[in-house]
Write a protein that binds this DNA or RNA. Sequence first.
RNA 1: GUGGGCGUAGCUCAGUUGGCUAGAGCGCCAGGUUGUGGUCCUGGAGGUCGCGGGUUCAAGCCCCGUCGUCCACCCCA
Length: 417
Amino acid sequence: MPSFATSPGTRDILAPDAPRWRLFQQTFADVVELAGFAHIIPPMFEDLGVFLRVGETTEIVTKEMYDFEDKGGRRVALRPEQTASVCRAFVEHRPVTPWKVWYAGPNFRYEKPQQGRYRQFDQVGIEVLGVDDPQLDAEVIGLAVEFYRRLGLQGVQLSVNSLGDSGDRDRYAVALRTHFSANIDALSAESRATLERNPLRVLDSKRQEDAALIAAAPKMADHLSDEAAAHFVDVQSALLSAGVGFIVDDRLVRGLDYYRRTTFEFVSTALSAAHVAIGGGGRYDGLVAELGGPDTPGIGFALGLDRTLLACDAEGVFAPPPGRVDVFVVDATGGTHAGAVCAELRAAGIGTDRAYDARSMKAQMKSADRAGARLAIIIGEDEAAAKTAIIRTMEGGSQHIVQRDALIAQVRQALHG
RNA sequence: GUGGGCGUAGCUCAGUUGGCUAGAGCGCCAGGUUGUGGUCCUGGAGGUCGCGGGUUCAAGCCCCGUCGUCCACCCCA
């Protein structure tokens, strides 16, 4: 037994998953950079206070934060998400608006691990600061939809809702509290506890016994200010004219307290209930101000890399890239020529690998096969003496002798010719 | 954090009411094929049965604890 293994909720990402991750992030970058988004790489830990803005009542803050005191006595935390960091960066650097950024990288939450739920988990996402326009809401949502399309996903459902402005949200919370308190006996014990902390989240309960009471609960739509209601109407019509399919879910309440007005969530119909939410986002118009900046609207989303890939697997799309080498050098002279041949091929930009330890030609051919090489370059004593090499096509098994100094040209022709 | 299922070879898993030296398939290595992979045949390496304690003449199997993983709740991506 090994002495060490990864900590709970963390894991090594090996091939072929690692190149798939890279392709995932690259595909995302391609989509959003085409829309004018610039890359931002925030630090993985910051002052705890930055993340407390996620919401004092959320579990992310109350029990899942990786926070600690560093050697200088600073109270810091590993980031549980990146929106708050982006807003902090906005306040710190004051870029011109609209500020459009994208990010990719790991976040940390101390949760009980499950499939599709890790303590270190990766997200990709975008944020736009400084624009209030409902057109932007639709554009941001549309970029996520476009990204899913690029991955090949079909079964992604978009739900949208408006949580109104902060005053609306507070009034709605009071209305919900009144509603549920009046029927407290019908409410599950867990939901009673949730009601204490955050009445809106009771709407998220999946328990059967709560279903009827939730269905009868007051609607957010009836508590929106005129401005928020108008904004939401405009978002919906912009989505419609952009051809983005969606459903309005007036019980969609996202877990982060900073959300205002437009909120949305993507669920995969190909996944089981536990991790159907593969992405989500919304407006957070008060967050920049809370972090000490000017009153600045903001909107963005984050997509879970792991869960999105689970959805891809469930749909059989976005297969891992092969990640192979084109040429494998088989040296039956004991390995004295392989190094030079590899260096020559690699310098010419041709992906090349070799075997070591002077293994038998049979073993080296097997390695060539396993490496997925299209060509084997075979050099034995005869070829070494004659300054030649054999080029063997792995698929089909035809081979021919070429002069050593013509090797690169011959390999190129065999690969592309 | 609560409740439950499962931890045996690198991987997927068998292992009877506790009973000789713990098995299979795949993978890996070697040979069959004295210069050639993918098929086939033969052989080989590889295990403190997650870890610790207990019961017993005897524990992979039973009991307790612990760690890990998976599922549901919770939460969320």
